[in-house]
């Protein structure tokens, strides 16, 4: 059964697009058929992160308006057979999206994929509400600081009231994904700690993604971090999160600062 997952946050810049790409790739690596859909009409980024920006011909708006067929707009990932991208339009704005258009596209995608991951734009307006409208599950991305946590709370309220599932009186499954978790700053008490965030949001935790240069590096080469360097800390955290999404029970690892002991430093590298 296809699952529609929205990745949303309210606040911008917390890592929705990065998380969409990383989770999508991680699920696809597990053999699931995945499409990542960019709902950020007018400010699209997912195509860049996925490294598909040079192959975009048709987009979400074209399909919604019947100008192009869905199969024409879908772009298959070059690295993973089962990973697809439905890009957004960069030249239009969010008003070009209609409820009916989104409904039909999602219904169509449901017949073709196991996972439909919708990358929501920031904000709480039309773009964001349409991205979550037909979702079955939601990943709420937040950073460990107060403003993004409050925005996440706002978005959770909307997930519980503005989605089709909520309007039918059903419970939409929600997860919190904490990104840009800085281990050294957390140790110094400069960030909200995990327990505080979970207490405020009252939603189960999907994963904790550490702040890392690897994320930026992966974005710059147009690759989801889980594909670019699968052994890196953030990639491992995303892979664990993806496993939890598909129903596995995986122990939660709170990233801790890796201090190399004195002996490790001395004998860290072995000469050939």
């Amino acid at each position: 059964m296809a699952k529609v997952l929205v990745v949303t946050s309210g606040k911008g810049g917390v890592g929705k697009t990065t998380s969409t790409a990383a989770l999508g790739a991680a699920l696809a690596q597990r053999g699931e058929k995945v499409v990542v859909v960019d709902f950020d009409v007018g400010l699209r980024n997912l195509d860049l992160i996925m490294g598909a920006e040079r192959r975009v011909v048709f987009d979400l708006i074209n399909v919604a308006q019947g100008v192009a067929k869905l199969s024409q707009a879908l772009i298959r990932d070059k690295r993973l057979e089962s990973l697809w991208l439905l890009p957004a339009s960069q030249t239009r704005d969010k008003d070009a999206l209609t409820d009916e258009g989104v409904r039909d596209i999602i219904a169509d995608l449901r017949t073709k994929f196991d996972w439909i991951i919708c990358d929501s734009p920031a904000g709480i307006e039309r773009g964001a509400t349409l991205a979550m409208r037909y979702a079955d599950e939601a990943v709420v991305v937040t950073n460990p600081e107060v403003s993004s946590v409050r925005d996440a709370d706002r978005i959770i309220g909307m997930l519980d009231s503005k989605t089709v599932k909520a309007e039918k009186g059903e419970q939409l499954k929600k997860h919190v994904l904490i990104t840009r978790y800085d281990t050294s700053r957390a140790a110094r008490g400069e960030m909200l700690n995990i327990d505080d965030i979970l207490e405020i949001l009252a939603v189960p935790l999907l994963g904790i993604i550490p702040e890392s240069q690897d994320v930026l590096k992966a974005s710059n080469v147009g690759s989801p971090v889980t594909l670019n360097n699968a052994s890196s800390m953030p990639a491992r955290a995303y892979i664990d999160a993806a496993r939890r999404l598909s129903g596995e029970t995986v122990d939660m690892v709170v990233p801790t600062e890796q201090r190399r002991g004195f002996m490790n430093r001395l004998l860290g590298r072995r000469a050939a």
Partner: peptide, 24 residues
């Protein structure tokens, strides 16, 4: 009650079993 939600009940008491978020 999440941030941004507004509960108005002029007839009587309001009881919330969970938390009331910042901005609610």
């Amino acid at each position: 009650v999440r941030s941004g939600q507004r509960i108005v009940f002029t007839e009587g008491d309001v009881t919330v079993l969970g938390s009331v978020g910042s901005g609610a």
